[in-house]
Design a protein around this nucleic acid. Structure first.
Lengths: 346, 346
DNA sequence: TTGAAAGCGCTAACAG
DNA sequence: CTGTTAGCGCTTTCAA
């Protein structure tokens, strides 16, 4: 039961010395190698359990050139959206005996690049990434692709021909919103979009436009606003809409920051939601119900996004040559007070 | 410029072969060892940069018995409170060249124990932990303490004689709230607490009681409610308060879940905040301003809590024998509409 | 059925 | 100034 002082972990060597066999015998016994006699095997396994032996992942990593670590890069850590996705990734990773190393890009390209560098330094086996808001060039990812580092994107994606990815059906989601407005009697439907280079922004714009069309509504360019996804900018965009000679009677915001900013601005002008102007956002459950009025919104299957991303990652590792697939998940429109004039709660 | 195929990282060996010197020369050159001639050093460093050499942390870890990884265990990942603390930890860790491995206990003892096991298996150098809500026995930590694994607690803490910790001044915070209510004309002040075994719950109760006393108010046991920190239970607790023959004119909730649940229940009964009943919570900035009315609340210096915890951790590593200290950070009462009858916005 | 030895990438003591 | 060697913990030939 001895362990050299200062050492915090028992090694094969310790076990071997204790029992009086060679290190390789211990190794084989613990791996249930058939060569070792049952009695010896049992004795070694028992001692190992007693002494709390756990294999040293550093040694294994060095030997096998595999750290069983995945790097995950998200734009931020403090929103429910990403942390919930991370939980999904973690769950699948744990099942596979992998650990994840989390880094945040803080929505900047510079920190995204830095995060990749750092994670690669730690010898993660690959990366699961959501692009930062700023990211418009992709050389840092091309480098990874060239070195065949396993890579998966989610939500904000690029290079989808070469990299597996998981996204939600943004076109469909934006269509759902537009149609929902229409069904509830709203006709001047505005949309506050994000930066053009983000796939999610483009796709939601497409859904908005096709939604209008399928409802037989005309598109008025002044009802399509843009912002940089900050609260401040979103408030300004909302202001421009409300200042229009013919302001909209319904607005939908590209994400929760934008939706809440819009809500603030609308209220601050003394307008009522949804009587004067209806509002819908892309948000998560919790925030939507905590505000007043409760916000109708598209909710993302965040946990599943994470799970899918992790599954794609392991597919990649197990089958590096397979063609990259894109998994498209469905969103759900959850109707609450903010978009229905005569709301019957149940 | 050759690199064996299949290898994703350049090693000292690769560099040595490329230049035609020994591995140790390369090692020394990269460590700026004075023994190596300037020219050789320069040449090696140049090549290393060109070939994107980065030292293999597995090899270093094995050699130095130090992984430069810290395990962080939080009750959950998806609230701003913990993710913001994690950001604080991360910042300090990064400065020291450490990485953090994050695990969530999901507020259960079982997952907390499992998380410790898993993290120890990965050979983290130590742990920074916030206890799960369930945790009432501490043997799993005693084991770490006995093996002198560096350990730091934050927010929900135990064994503070042996383990450094960082907390906020909960007594003071609860006093501030009580006094704030008093100053604004409220006299029947209720408090919805959490489970007794949590230090934060106890401390806030103490602050509530001493706050009442210093305002010259009597304590009415029926105004001290308890819940298990779930929304459902908090709604029930609020209900009980509102059903009282003489209901309170002010409530404060032990955390944001409770405060928002209380808000919902109060509104659902057609009562106005703060006209009929005032409300204060412990929350973060973002949530407090998004609800209506904006919620007066105690905000925690979350990022700093993380920073302090990390600093304590490194103190521990650098000076294992020092007496464990407890860092107590101050909270801030941010007054908003929910607790002031005649609110002048500025 | 078991042991010895090599090697994963790196540093440091010891030799030249 | 530079090379050789041993060893961190582990698996895996190769020998016995």
């Amino acid at each position: 039961m001895t362990m050299e002082k200062g050492k915090r972990h028992v090694s094969l060597k310790d076990l071997a010395k204790e029992i009086g066999v060679s290190i390789s015998t211990v190794s084989r016994a613990l791996n249930n190698h058939p060569d070792i006699s049952p009695e010896v095997t049992l004795k070694i396994q028992k001692l190992a359990a007693e002494m709390n032996y756990t294999p040293n992942p550093l040694a294994m990593g060095l030997l096998k050139q595999a750290t069983r670590m995945i790097g995950v890069i998200v734009p931020d850590l403090v929103t429910h959206f990403y942390s919930s996705i991370i939980s999904g990734i973690e769950q699948i990773a744990e099942e596979k005996g992998y650990y994840i190393l989390i880094a945040s890009s803080n929505e900047t390209l510079q920190k995204e690049i830095k995060a990749i560098e750092n994670l690669m330094k730690t010898r993660v086996e690959g990366l699961i990434v959501c692009l930062s808001q700023e990211t418009q060039s992709y050389e840092h990812f091309d480098r990874l692709i060239k070195n065949s580092i396993p890579l998966v994107f989610f939500d904000r994606v690029c290079r989808t021909d070469e990299v597996p990815s998981v996204v939600v059906d943004n076109v469909d989601a934006a269509q759902k919103i537009t149609k929902h407005f229409y069904k509830n009697g709203f006709r001047r439907i505005a949309y506050i979009a994000g930066p053009d280079h983000l796939n999610i922004s483009q796709e939601r714009t497409r859904g908005y436009l096709s939604g209008l069309k399928s409802c037989g509504l005309d598109f008025y360019p002044e009802l399509l606003e843009k912002c940089n996804l900050s609260t401040k900018d979103a408030i300004k965009a909302t202001g421009r809409l409300l200042n229009l000679p013919k302001p909209p009677d319904a607005i939908f915001g590209i994400n929760d920051t934008v939706a809440f900013a819009a809500m603030k601005e609308i209220k601050s002008r003394g307008l009522r939601i949804p009587e004067d102007i209806a509002l819908v956002g892309f948000t998560d459950e919790f925030h939507s119900t905590v505000v007043d009025p409760a916000l109708t919104s598209i909710t993302h299957p965040t946990f599943e996004i994470g799970q899918e991303a992790a599954r794609l990652f392991f597919n990649r590792i197990e089958n590096p040559e397979a063609n990259p697939v894109q998994v498209i998940l469905n969103t759900k429109l959850v109707v609450r007070k903010s978009s229905v004039k005569f709301y019957l709660s149940h």
